[in-house]
C-alpha cells in the first residue's frame, strides 16, 4: 500500500479544488466558523424579538454577568489542553473570597486583600497539583475531593453567616467603569488578559509544549519537554486566576458566603469545550473560546430579557456542554464516511 503517494495525490486534489465555494465550506465547517454563525444568528434573533438587546449600554453592562466566568476559562484552556481537568476552581474562588473576607474583618486594606485572595488561590492550585502530578492521582478524583475541602473550609467556619464588610475602594474591580466611559473595568481586564493568554498559547514555547503534551504526553516527554512541570504550572496558574476571579466577584457582590460561585466550574469548562478545545487535549485556540464566551454570555442575557427562568439557562448550559463534545464527533464521522465512499468509488 503506497499510503504516502495516495495521500500526496489526495492533498494535491484538495489544493486544486479550493474555489471560493470550498473556502466558504471550509470556514463554516471549522468550529470557530460554526460558533461565529451561531453568534450572528443569535444576535439577529434577539434583536428582532426585543428592542433592548442591541443597545450599546445594555450590551456593555451585560458583560458584568459573564466576565468573571470568562476570566476563569482562560487558564482552564491550558489545563484542558493538556488533557487534565480541574473541577475545584469554583471552590477555590470560595476559599479565596473567604480568606479576603476574613482579612477584611481584620482591617486589611484593598491592596492587601488582593494579594491575599490571589495567594490563597495559588496555594489551592498548588495543593491540587501536588496530588495530581507528584502522587499521580487522576485530576478528576483529586479536584472532586479538594473542591469539597476548599468550600468546606469556608462552610465550616462561616456556617450560615457571611462576610459583608469590605473597604470602599475594593468595589472598583467588580463594579467600576473605565473613567469617562461606560465600558466596565472587568471587560477591559478580560480582553487584555485574553490577549496575554493568546500570546502565550500561540507564540511561545510554553504554548507549543502545551499542544505537544495534549496530543501525546509520552512523545513530549521523550522529546525533552518537562511535562510534569508544565502541568504543575497550569494548576497553579488556574488557582491564581481563581483568586483573581474571587477578587472581581467579591468586589462586585460585596459579600462572601460559602455558596459563592457555586457551579462555576461547569460554566468555565463549558466555555472552553464549546470554544473547540478538545476535552482529551491538544486541540483548540483562543479565538474559539472568545466566541463561546460572548455566545453564551449574550445568549443568557437575551434569554433573561425575554424572561426565561434561570433554571432553563442551567439546562441550556448543560446541553451546550454535551453538544460541544457531541457535534465534532458527529462531524468527524460524516467526514470519515464521505472519505470512505469516495475511496470506494475510486
Amino acid at each position: 500500500m503506497d499510503t504516502n503517494k495516495t495521500l500526496a495525490n489526495e492533498s494535491r486534489l484538495v489544493e486544486e479544488n479550493k474555489g471560493l465555494k470550498n473556502k466558504i465550506i471550509a470556514l463554516v465547517t471549522r468550529w470557530e466558523g460554526v460558533l461565529a454563525l451561531i453568534l450572528i444568528a443569535m444576535v439577529i434573533l434577539f434583536s428582532n424579538i426585543t428592542p433592548y438587546f442591541l443597545d450599546y449600554f445594555n450590551l456593555m453592562n451585560a458583560t458584568f454577568t459573564f466576565m468573571e466566568k470568562a476570566v476563569l476559562a482562560l487558564p482552564m484552556i491550558f489545563i484542558i489542553m493538556c488533557g487534565d481537568i480541574d473541577i475545584s476552581v469554583a471552590a477555590i474562588i470560595a476559599l479565596s473570597s473567604f480568606a479576603m473576607g476574613f482579612a477584611s474583618s481584620m482591617g486589611v486594606d484593598t491592596g492587601g486583600l488582593i494579594i491575599i485572595g490571589i495567594l490563597t488561590g495559588a496555594l489551592a492550585g498548588a495543593f491540587n497539583a501536588l496530588f495530581i502530578i507528584r502522587f499521580r492521582i487522576p485530576a478528576i478524583a483529586v479536584t472532586l475531593a479538594s473542591l469539597s475541602m476548599f468550600r468546606g473550609v469556608s462552610q465550616a467556619i462561616l456556617g450560615d453567616q457571611a462576610y459583608t464588610q469590605y473597604p470602599a475602594s475594593f468595589s472598583y474591580f467588580g463594579q467600576g467603569y473605565i473613567p469617562g466611559t461606560i465600558i466596565p473595568f472587568e471587560l477591559v481586564f478580560f480582553l487584555i488578559l485574553a490577549a496575554g493568554f493568546a500570546y502565550v498559547l500561540h507564540f511561545t514555547t510554553y504554548g507549543r509544549k502545551l499542544y505537544a503534551i495534549g496530543n501525546s504526553a509520552t512523545a513530549a516527554k521523550f522529546s525533552g519537554v518537562d511535562v510534569d512541570r508544565i502541568r504543575f504550572t497550569n494548576f497553579v496558574l488556574n488557582g491564581v486566576f481563581a483568586g483573581v476571579v474571587a477578587v472581581l466577584l467579591t468586589s462586585r457582590i460585596g459579600s462572601t458566603r460559602p455558596n459563592i460561585a457555586m457551579g462555576w466550574e461547569l460554566e468555565a469548562i463549558t466555555l472552553v469545550v464549546l470554544g473547540g478545545v478538545s476535552i482529551s487535549g491538544g486541540k483548540g485556540n483562543i479565538v474559539g473560546v472568545l466566541l463561546s464566551v460572548f455566545l453564551i454570555g449574550y445568549l443568557k442575557f437575551g434569554m433573561g430579557l425575554i424572561n426565561m427562568s434561570a433554571k432553563i439557562m442551567i439546562i441550556t448550559t448543560g446541553f451546550l456542554l454535551i453538544l460541544a463534545v457531541l457535534l465534532p464527533v458527529i462531524m468527524d464521522n460524516v467526514k470519515k464516511q464521505n472519505k470512505l465512499k469516495a475511496q470506494r468509488r475510486a
Binding site: N215, A220, G282
Partner: peptide, 18 residues
C-alpha cells in the same frame, strides 16, 4: 507512534519540539 512522533501535529511542530 506513541513515543516518537506526535501524530496529530504538523511535521514542523514535530521536528522542532526538542
Amino acid at each position: 507512534q506513541t513515543q516518537g512522533v506526535i501524530l496529530e501535529q504538523s511535521l514542523t511542530s514535530n521536528i522542532t519540539l526538542p
